[in-house]
Computed example of a mutant assay.
Amino acid sequence: MGFLTHAISVLIAVIAIAFTVFVNYPPPPESPILYQWRTSGKYYEFNGYDIFYKDEFGKGNELINATILCLHGFPTSSFDFYKVWPHLKKTFKRVIAVDFLGLGFSSKPRYHHYSVFEQSDLVENFLKHLGIREVHVWSHDYGDTVAQELIARQNEGKEKITLKSVSMMNGGIFPGIYRPFLVQKLLRFPIIGTILGKLANYYMFSTNIISVFGEETCPTVAELYDMWAIIRYNDGYRISGEILYYMDERHMNEDRWVGALKETKIKIHFIYGALDPINPESFVDFYKKIIPNPIIDVLRNCGHYPHLELPDIVFNLYQKFIRNHILS
């Protein structure tokens, strides 16, 4: 009995040491391109928190006086737009991207009640800070839901900014057909989610993130390490469950946010990667049925991250939308 007790004590000690080493394992170093992205960005204060953003002036052409705002998804950051950023700078006069609170290089407070409504306030406050009143929005995933709330506010005449157009990519804008992964659901549970958050690591992350990409458009190892480095920044991986509250909000506010897309006078565009497991292909028919005069482009060989997987093609689709439906 004494041997068994001793063995169990040793095992517990080994597990405790392994756990301590595991959760304190340093994040990967930034690649040169990620380092350049971060160091060329700026910060502004929102409700006492530091919010990272990129703000650059482009050459402009047909949209010489227009500004575009890029809204990223979960669990990544504005860096997702880096491959289309040069294209945007050639098209728009001003190109802006912001990291939501709790994500990217922005502050990541723990025990914070993260909400789509707060992130929408952040966007409005951010644009006011820059002195911008009108924007074209290009969003992805979580950013799509924030865009829906901004559209709802504009429909109600309560907006602080004017959306000139909105183009979305692979967001769960219809909660009824959205299929989150099991790990996302588990992260929402108080105790289990806390443990899973602390146990999160590059290998778990890379396995899950690769599964939402197309088979032929998977990210490189270097790109995966950059994504993970951003998530590890300020221990962001530990608050994933708190940010995922947006999945609950989508259901609670389904009438408001889906209704916003149905009622708006703003031109809405959707670029859909058909190999996305969390937004199954039934999404296309549902979108066409729900949205009046739908404008949607479907990429058959693309997954959840169109702007990372097929950046040139995706930008051309976006530019076609602007030319055909905004400038015409």
Rank of each mutant, 00 (worst) to 15 (best):
M247A: 04
D80C: 07
Y44S: 11
I210V: 09
Y111N: 13
A66C: 04
S78Q: 07
R188H: 02
W138K: 04
H6I: 11
F74P: 01
Y178C: 02
D50K: 15
S206N: 11
S9L: 15
L150T: 03
T91Q: 07
G58E: 02
N253L: 10
S106M: 03
W37V: 03
G143E: 01
L308M: 14
A18I: 15
K289R: 15
R238E: 07
L63V: 02
N293P: 04
F105E: 04
A200S: 14
G41E: 10
F3H: 09
R232G: 08
K288H: 09
K198M: 10
L224Y: 05
E62W: 13
Y114V: 04
M168S: 03
F174A: 04
K320N: 06
E249D: 03
A229L: 06
R179H: 00
I161T: 08
Q36F: 08
N47M: 14
E156W: 12
Y43E: 04
N170Y: 00
Y202E: 09
Y142G: 03
D255P: 05
H269D: 13
W138H: 07
N253F: 14
E124Y: 11
M168L: 09
D235V: 14
E223T: 11
V10N: 09
Y272W: 00
V221T: 15
S78E: 05
T91M: 05
I231R: 11
V258A: 07
P175S: 00
H6Q: 11
K89I: 07
P26A: 02
V116G: 15
I173N: 01
K128D: 08
I64R: 13
L101Y: 07
F79L: 06
G193A: 13
A274L: 06
I322Y: 10
T162R: 14
V95C: 04
R38A: 02
E254Q: 15
L275A: 09
P29E: 02
P292D: 10
N155A: 07
L63H: 00
I295Q: 13
N253Y: 11
Y287T: 00
G236I: 09
S206G: 07
L163F: 11
I17W: 12
E156T: 08
S40V: 06
N125V: 14
I243P: 05
D80Q: 08
N201K: 14
Y202R: 15
V137A: 00
N125A: 13
L122V: 12
S31A: 00
Y114W: 05
G197V: 12
K320F: 05
T20A: 15
L187V: 10
